[in-house]
């Protein structure tokens, strides 16, 4: 598969009189290949939006190499801009214009047939509200309009920064279905979001950024597998005795209330055999698989029990060992 987005060593520092120098992106790498639905995750202030802005030529990078659809960006971005639909953060629209007129203006400015406007409004569920002024739209409707603006071009690549912002649960689901259907037609999608469950449901690939650096990248299932500790939740009548038996079998077992958390077993049948042979019958044996949220929190050092500031300088988990988990490329130490 060919690369649709390539970013290598992107670095961006902001300078301000009040806050001094702040490194927003620090040697970041990203690879999105054709046909992927690629999730782009990171805590607030981790550099997601700055990365997308730099990629789209809105922010000047200090250093690094970027390309979009094979063209160096931002130098030759205009060559492929017609094939890239993008929204960056929540775009503001002219409140006095109707949704239809807003899209018509963009279509006209971008040389897109105005007939696409109705199609785009229909795709995002605004067909019947296109004649209303944007200022009367709810946050979710504005977000839909933003996505419609990105879809106007019938893009090969769709870059969506927090597309679920302001959407209600039904809207989030519609957005998920929309992205799936676009992906099914061959559109490559790069989507940044805080809603990790959504990313896990929608995306086949993911890149996680923290403190301006990539801390994980690859297929979603492989990233999760990289954090699978092969732990199992076991319920038996006598957890204390079961723990002793498992310890004796060189497995690690920790009593957690009326259950056990067992690790170190590559095969769950070992657990049931060790306990069964001693007359302890297993009532429940559940593998404890990591989800994207737990991996995200572990990688970014954002533990919910600790109040954390957006600019906290704590090194992300992976960066502590100076290693980046890249399941497409192996582990770089």
């Amino acid at each position: 598969m060919s690369a649709v987005i390539e970013i290598e060593g992107l670095r961006k520092t902001f300078h301000s009189m009040r806050n001094g120098r702040r490194v927003a992106v620090d040697g970041f790498d990203l690879l999105v290949e054709e046909g992927q639905v690629h999730g782009f995750l990171g805590p607030n202030g981790s550099g997601k939006t700055t990365t997308l802005r730099a990629l789209l030529g809105l922010v000047r990078a200090d250093s690094g190499r970027m390309s979009v659809l094979g063209q160096p960006s931002p130098e030759l971005l205009p060559r492929v801009a017609g094939q890239v639909g993008a929204i960056v953060e929540s775009p503001q629209f002219f409140g006095n214009f109707t949704g239809y007129r807003t899209l018509r203006l963009l279509a006209r400015a971008g040389g897109v047939p105005v007939s696409r406007v109705d199609e785009a409004l229909d795709l995002v569920g605004l067909r019947d509200r296109g004649d209303e002024r944007v200022k009367a739209y709810s946050l979710g409707m504005k977000q839909r309009l933003a996505v419609a603006s990105a879809l106007l071009k019938d893009p090969r690549l769709l870059i969506l920064d927090e597309p679920a912002n302001g959407l209600d649960p039904a809207g989030i689901r519609e957005m998920r279905d929309l992205m799936r259907s676009l992906a099914a037609t061959g559109v490559t999608v790069l989507v940044s979001s805080h809603i990790l469950g959504e990313i896990q449901l929608i995306c086949d690939h993911v890149t996680i950024i923290s403190q301006g650096r990539r801390v994980a990248s690859g297929r979603v299932d492989e990233v999760l597998a990289g954090y699978d500790r092969h732990e199992f939740l076991v319920r038996v009548a006598d957890p204390q005795r079961a723990a002793e038996l498992l310890d004796a079998a060189e497995l690690t077992a920790v009593v957690d209330g009326e259950a056990l958390v067992v690790s170190g077993a590559s095969d769950p049948t070992v657990i049931s055999r060790v306990l069964g042979e001693q007359g302890l019958w297993v009532g429940e044996l559940t593998p404890l698989r990591p989800d994207l949220e737990s991996v995200f929190l572990e990688l970014t050092g954002a533990h919910p029990s600790v109040p954390r500031q957006v600019d906290d300088s704590a090194l992300p988990y992976a960066a502590q060992g100076d290693a980046v988990i890249d399941l497409d490329r192996g582990v770089d130490a």
Partner: peptide, 14 residues
């Protein structure tokens, strides 16, 4: 101020 220019530049990045 409103981001209108950014919107436009996403369409015409010149």
């Amino acid at each position: 101020n409103s981001g209108g220019v950014v919107n436009l530049l996403l369409w015409r990045p010149r």
